[in-house]
Design a protein around this nucleic acid. Structure first.
Lengths: 126, 126
DNA sequence: CTGGATCCTGCCCGATACTG
DNA sequence: CAGTATCGGGCAGGATCCAG
């Protein structure tokens, strides 16, 4: 075994670690529910139950799971009001807002090419 | 049973159909492999086996599956050269290129906030 | 109302083998 | 080389129940 690192230097290791982290984040973010949640939040502050209504078709479990994930990554901020019944509010952080901008781009793209895609599908299915 | 439509007019039906189509497209596109494939393609033209090497970690099956899906939606163009062994090349269409631009934004975002996210995770995990 | 924990089902996806 | 079909294990995700 070698004491020194392989191809050389800890910079390579750092780069590899950053890459794997980027991949991880990419996997977290590139999922339907996360994107829809962020898009629904926009610049508003919403409660859990409100989000449940906003994000069409999301289950209780998926919403909770993704919100925790987004909170962990620092994309949403979770504030608990010590009242009964409990009131918990979610809002996008600055990184979250930045991400939302790119998601807006994705939505724009979807609507712009809706027609192209529909006809392309029809042709393909024949 | 009613002969007339519910809330009225076929425009509502059109809107609902467009929405469901948009959701469908969103689900197709908001998936890790599709995004990575599009990003890898960029403005190049690549063969199946080349894509297999480019997109780190993708399986034969997932690559074929996603390529068919992208082709169906008209985001990639598939050209078969009638030689042996067969040579099949993939390239982004104009809608595909447009989508790639927004994905680039996503990648930029990822790298810009890599640090934020890492520290946020660390704090959260405590 | 928020959000865990648990069970259970269906499907995703990897491995493999087979055609052109 | 490119692509499809099949099988099987594992995990995603819905339903439900409970706790604070």
């Amino acid at each position: 075994m070698v004491t020194k690192q392989f191809s050389g230097s800890s910079e390579d290791a750092d780069l590899r670690r950053a890459d794997s982290l980027a991949r991880e984040i990419f996997s977290d973010v590139a999922n339907k529910w996360a994107l829809l949640i962020i898009e629904s939040l926009g610049e508003r502050t919403l409660r859990f139950s409100e989000l449940r209504n906003e994000v069409e078709g999301v289950s209780h479990k998926m919403l909770a799971q993704n919100l925790r994930m987004l909170e962990r990554n620092g994309l949403v901020e979770r504030t608990v009001h010590p009242v009964v019944p409990p009131r918990v509010e979610y809002t996008l952080t600055e990184p979250g807002q930045a991400l939302r901008v790119t998601i807006d781009g994705l939505c724009d793209w979807t609507h712009r090419y809706l027609g192209h895609i529909e006809t392309s599908r029809h042709r393909f299915d024949a």
